[in-house]
Structures are given as C-alpha cells and as structure tokens.
C-alpha cells in the first residue's frame, strides 16, 4: 500500500511475557552506550590488570619460562587472599570510575524529559524500571570485576591443581560476594543520585563527591574528634574493611566488620528509599 494511503490498523499479534520486560531497557541502553568509543576504550583498559594477573599466575607456575627469563620462582608473591584482595581494590576502583561514566545518564534524562509517564503508563512497574536500569550497571560492572576474578581463580586452580582449588574454594566465594556487594552499592548510589538531581553532569559530580568528599570529611572528623566515626562516611574504607575480612587479610581497619556491613546496608536502604521517592510518573504536590 502506498504510504500516503496508510490508515491506522489495530495490532492483534502475540504479546511477550511481562517478567523479562525490564531487559528491554537494558538492551536499548547498551545499544546507546556502546556507541561511545571512549566507553569501549575504557572497558578495554579495565581488562589490563586482570590480564596482567593472568600472566603473573601463568608465569609463577611455569618454572622453565621463569628460568629462561632468569627469574626465581621463590621470589614471586603467592596467589592467595591478599593477591585477590589487591585485585578487588584495583578493579573496584575501576568499577567506581565506570559507574561515574555510565550511571548519571541512566535515570536523570528520563526524569528531566518527563519520560517516566510514558514508561509507567504501560504494563511496566517502577520496580521493573529500576531493575532494568540497574541491570545495565550490574552487567557492565560484573564484566570488569567478578567475572575476570573468577577466571583468575580458575586459571590458578588449573595451574596449581584441583587440591588447591578445593582448599581455596572460599576465595571464589569471597570474590563473588565481595565484588557483588560493591557493584550493588555502586549501582544503587548511581541510580539514586541520578534520580535525585535529574541532571547528568550534576549526578556525575555528586557520585564523585560521595566517595571523595566522604573520604575527606571522614578523615577530618577522625582528626577533630579523635574517634573513628569519620570512617562511617568513607565508603571506600568501608568496603575495603569488608574485603579484608572476606579475603582473611588480617590488616587493621578503623571499623569493625559488623559496622562496615551495617554502613553498606544503610547506604543501600537510603538509596532504595530515594529511588522510591523520585522514580514516579508525576510528583504529587501537596
């Protein structure tokens, strides 16, 4: 039919199940995000450290190669909890940077452009919306954190033998739990701040402020009051305390492990509360 003769036609075709509709948001967001060459480059850079770790693990188990390179196998640091703790700190920092790049553009533009009424007038709930937006960050951050971490564990297990893998299976659990906690906290903070300020640039600045200003203020509070209460608002320190405990590192921290878990829990709860308040089709003015 010629285009100019088109009339409106009803749709009577099949419908999809509502359960997985939140993936639709993720799919469209990835299509937009991966148009950015900078993001792709950054993701590639994020893989350098895991790649270096993989080479290190391979080298530390390859005596002939070490000999050929005139390196002593005894001088290589062991692949243990501390090794993976350092891995978490490095990849965790990169995950934070990736969150500041991607996070602000997820919710803020929808709220600023009034698109929420279009999403929520469909059979699509606020929970599904938040889940869809959060999935974007969870998958991206997983790609540079626990996925390569588990691959490193498997490489080490392959090189050191399955006895090592059996004895050190807790390491795999710690990698999964420690990094999942971090990426959930990062994702929630990014979404909540993005929803709160409704402006991409301000949201990015706020995410940076939460971590860096939090650390700065925390140090000031500690010095002025001569207590450790400032550590409660230093999220980097909080998560490092959790990781040290998970990887049985034994280094001293200002916070107890229970306090660190409590701070992370409260942070997540605050973010969820903020999201529940802001992610609405229309604001109710009383």
């Amino acid at each position: 039919m010629a285009v100019y003769k088109q009339t409106y036609k009803d749709y009577n075709g099949p419908r999809t199940t509502p359960w997985f509709r939140f993936f639709i948001l993720s799919r469209y967001s990835y299509a937009r995000l991966f148009q950015s060459k900078f993001l792709v480059l950054f993701l590639a850079v994020c893989m350098f450290y895991p790649l270096g770790c993989a080479v290190f693990i391979y080298l530390s188990h390859n005596i002939p190669l070490l000999t050929a390179l005139r390196l002593r196998s005894g001088g290589m640091p062991p692949v243990d909890g501390q090794f993976f703790n350092v891995y978490c700190v490095v990849q965790g920092a990169l995950a934070f940077l990736l969150t500041t790049l991607v996070g602000p553009s997820l919710v803020a533009p929808d709220l600023a452009n009034g698109a929420m009424s279009l999403y929520l007038s469909r059979p699509f709930s606020r929970t599904q919306y938040v889940a869809g937006k959060m999935t974007i960050l969870l998958l991206l951050l997983s790609l540079i954190t626990w996925v390569p971490g588990i691959v490193l564990y498997l490489i080490q297990a392959g090189c050191a033998g399955w006895d090592w893998a059996r004895v050190h299976v807790w390491l795999a659990g710690s990698i999964l739990l420690g990094l999942w906690v971090w990426i959930v906290v990062l994702s929630l903070i990014a979404l909540a701040l993005s929803a709160w300020v409704k402006w991409k640039i301000a949201a990015g600045a706020l995410i940076l402020a939460v971590f860096f200003a939090g650390a700065g203020f925390g140090a000031v509070i500690n010095n002025v009051t001569r207590t450790h209460y400032g550590a409660f608002i230093d999220l980097m320190q909080v998560v490092r305390t959790v990781w040290s405990d998970l990887f049985r590192d034994g280094s001293r921290a200002a916070l107890s492990v229970a306090e660190a878990w409590a701070v992370l829990g409260v942070t997540c709860a605050l973010c969820l509360w903020l999201l529940a308040r802001r992610v609405r089709a229309f604001e109710v003015v009383k």
Binding site: N113, A115, S117
Partner: peptide, 25 residues
Amino acid sequence: PENDSFIADMTAVSFVRMMGELSGL
C-alpha cells in the same frame, strides 16, 4: 501526556519501538 515526554538522544523509530516492546510487543 500533555507535557513534553521523550528521550532526547533516541531516534523516533527506536523510541516508538521501545515503547511498543514495553507494552508487550
């Protein structure tokens, strides 16, 4: 809706398609 409601950095066809998919297509 009455107010401006759109996603600025999407093409019209992607936007309308996404809204269709969110409605179950």
